[in-house]
């Protein structure tokens, strides 16, 4: 589980090109959007696609993605 979390944080920083953020800066329960990592709706779309590819899971539609991130 820890490995998965680390992998996820690295992927978010690398593929969403977050500047000046290290995996250690992200707490497990930080919100992704607004006050947390500051991601926006464009990033959310990329995150859904990235997670599907990276972890080989199927997210059927973006509403399902929205629930998963909430």
């Amino acid at each position: 589980m820890e490995k998965l979390k680390a992998e996820l944080k690295e992927m978010i920083i690398r593929d969403l090109k977050l500047q000046g953020v290290e995996p250690a800066d992200i707490n497990d329960d930080d919100p992704l959007f607004e006050e947390g990592l500051g991601l926006d709706s464009l990033d959310a779309v990329e995150l859904v696609v990235l997670i599907q590819k990276h972890f080989d899971v199927q997210i059927e539609d973006m509403d399902e993605g929205r629930e998963a991130f909430a």
Binding site: S41, L42, E46, D61, M62
Partner: peptide
């Protein structure tokens, strides 16, 4: 544009 690309991606 990134807005158009992500928009189409969000609609699958």
């Amino acid at each position: 544009s990134r807005v158009a690309l992500n928009g189409f991606a969000s609609l699958m």
